[in-house]
């Protein structure tokens, strides 16, 4: 399990409220943003995903679901990457409240 230090968000929420707001990436609603907290996957997969941009502190946006409902397309680091639910379940994100419908960078 890889943990980030403190995420550097604009208006700082308190550390207590972060832990309450950590969810699996697969739970992130469409159009919602999150901040990657950590990945809990086999080392090789984790490595691959991190090089594709899924590193702690990175901002991720759930962009759309495939027509069949799965996989889901995420915008991260200027790229669009589709992950199956089984993979997204092992990526943990902080949800950013009240920050919808804007592109992650």
């Amino acid at each position: 399990m890889l943990q980030a230090g403190k995420p550097h968000l604009g208006p700082h929420p308190t550390p207590e409220s972060w832990s309450l707001n950590v969810i699996a990436l697969s739970e992130l609603g469409i159009g919602k943003h999150g901040i990657v907290e950590g990945l809990d996957l086999p080392e090789e997969v984790q490595h691959h995903l991190m090089h594709m941009g899924f590193v702690p502190d990175a901002r991720v946006l759930a962009l759309r679901r495939a027509p069949a409902g799965d996989p889901t397309v995420y915008a991260i680091d200027g790229m669009e990457i589709a992950l199956r639910q089984e993979t997204a379940r092992s990526i943990h994100v902080w949800i950013i409240p009240g920050d919808d419908e804007q592109e992650g960078s």
Partner: peptide
């Protein structure tokens, strides 16, 4: 298979 389906669009 250790590599899951990761697809870059």
């Amino acid at each position: 298979s250790p590599t899951p389906f990761i697809l870059e669009l």
